[in-house]
C-alpha cells in the first residue's frame, strides 16, 4: 500500500465518521469548498506539463505552447458547438487518464491490454459517481439552461448498464493481469479494495464530496508523487519547496485565467453558468495534459525497461 492509498483510506474513514457534521453545511458551501479543493490540487498536478514535455523533446517551447493553447482553444470551440459530444469525449479521455495514473506504476511488465484496463477502470470510477447520483445530476441539468444539452445523456438504464459493464470488464482485466503475473497478488488485492471503497464512497456521499475526495487524493496526489519521483528520484531529503516552485508559474496563470472567466460570468460578460464554466475549464486543461502524461509515462516505462535490461 502506498502513502496515497493510505491517505485515501484515512480521509475516507474520517469523512464517514464526520459526515453528519457535513450535513449542517449548505450544499452551496460544500460545492464551493469542493471546487476550491479540486482546483487547488487539480490544476497544479498539470502545471508542469511544459517541463515534463520539453525536457525530453526537440520541440521548441514556442511550438509546444502553440500546440498546447491550440488544443485548449479547439476544446472550447468544441464545447460551445457540441456540448454533449464534448462531455462524452472529456469523460472518455479522463477515464483513460485516471486509469493510467492508477496502474502505470503497479503493472510489472508491458501488457497489450493495459490501455483497455486504464480506460475501463477510469470509466467504472467516473460512472460510479454518476450512477449513484443520477437523480441529482438530472435535476441539475434541468435547472440550468446551458446544461440542458446534457440531459439526453442522463439515462438511468444506460448509465447502469455502462457502470455494471465497466466494473465487470475492469474486474476481468484485473484477474487476467493477476493470472499473467503482471499484477502481484498484493497489488491486485489493494486495487480491488480501493475500487470497492470508491464505489462505496460514491454510494454513501453526494457527487461533489465523493468525486472531490477521489480526484484530489487518488488521482492528483498520485500524479504529484510520480512527478516528484521523476524530478528527485534519489533525494533523501524532501524537496518540497523546489518542487512547488516548479508548479507555481502555470498554476498561477491557470488560477488567474479561471478567476477572469468567473469574473466575466459574474459581471454578465460571459453568458455561461458556473457549472458549465467549471466543466469547460477543467476539460480544457485536461485535454492537453492527458497527451503530455501519456508521453511522460511512456518515457518512464522505457527508462525502467532499459535499466531493467541492463
Amino acid at each position: 500500500m502506498t502513502k496515497v492509498h493510505f491517505s485515501f483510506i484515512f480521509i475516507f474513514l474520517l469523512l464517514l465518521a464526520a459526515y453528519p457534521l457535513l450535513g449542517q453545511v449548505s450544499d452551496m458551501t460544500q460545492a464551493v469548498v469542493a471546487m476550491g479543493i479540486v482546483l487547488f490540487f487539480g490544476v497544479p498536478h498539470g502545471a508542469i506539463d511544459n517541463i515534463l514535455f520539453l525536457e525530453k523533446s526537440s520541440m521548441s517551447p514556442v511550438r509546444f505552447y502553440a500546440y498546447y493553447l491550440g488544443a485548449i482553444v479547439l476544446n472550447v470551440v468544441c464545447w460551445l458547438l457540441f456540448p454533449a459530444f464534448s462531455l462524452c469525449l472529456f469523460l472518455a479521455i479522463s477515464s483513460y487518464h485516471f486509469g493510467q495514473s492508477q496502474f502505470v506504476e503497479s503493472l510489472k511488465a508491458p501488457w497489450r491490454l493495459a490501455n483497455v484496463l486504464y480506460f475501463f477502470w477510469g470509466m467504472a470510477v467516473i460512472l460510479s459517481f454518476v450512477y449513484f447520483n443520477t437523480a441529482a445530476l438530472k435535476e441539475l441539468t434541468l435547472s440550468i439552461p446551458d446544461l440542458h444539452a446534457f440531459e439526453v445523456l442522463i439515462n438511468q438504464a444506460w448509465i447502469m448498464g455502462l457502470f455494471v459493464g465497466s466494473i465487470l470488464v475492469c474486474l476481468a482485466l484485473l484477474l487476467r493481469a493477476l493470472a499473467k503475473g503482471i499484477l502481484s497478488t498484493n497489488a491486485f488485492a489493494i486495487e480491488f479494495y480501493l475500487l470497492a471503497l470508491i464505489c462505496l464512497l460514491a454510494y454513501l456521499t453526494n457527487f461533489i464530496i465523493g468525486f472531490t475526495l477521489f480526484f484530489t487524493i487518488i488521482h492528483s496526489f498520485k500524479v504529484f508523487q510520480s512527478e516528484y519521483n521523476h524530478f528527485y528520484p534519489n533525494s533523501e531529503r524532501l524537496q518540497l519547496v523546489p518542487f512547488l516552485l516548479k508548479l507555481l508559474p502555470l498554476s498561477l496563470i491557470s488560477f488567474v485565467g479561471a478567476g477572469l472567466l468567473f469574473g466575466m460570468i459574474h459581471l454578465g460578460i460571459a453568458p455561461l453558468s458556473y457549472p458549465f464554466a467549471i466543466l469547460l475549464s477543467i476539460s480544457s486543461i485536461t485535454l492537453p495534459h492527458v497527451f503530455v502524461m501519456e508521453r511522460f509515462y511512456a518515457n518512464a516505462q522505457n527508462i525502467e525497461q532499459v535499466s531493467g535490461n541492463a
Partner: peptide, 19 residues
C-alpha cells in the same frame, strides 16, 4: 460523531503501523 472521529483516529493509527 465527535467520539466516532476520535475512535476512527485510533483505528487509523493501528492501520498506519501495520501498513
Amino acid at each position: 460523531v465527535i467520539w466516532g472521529i476520535i475512535s476512527t483516529v485510533g483505528y487509523v493509527g493501528i492501520l498506519y503501523e501495520v501498513w
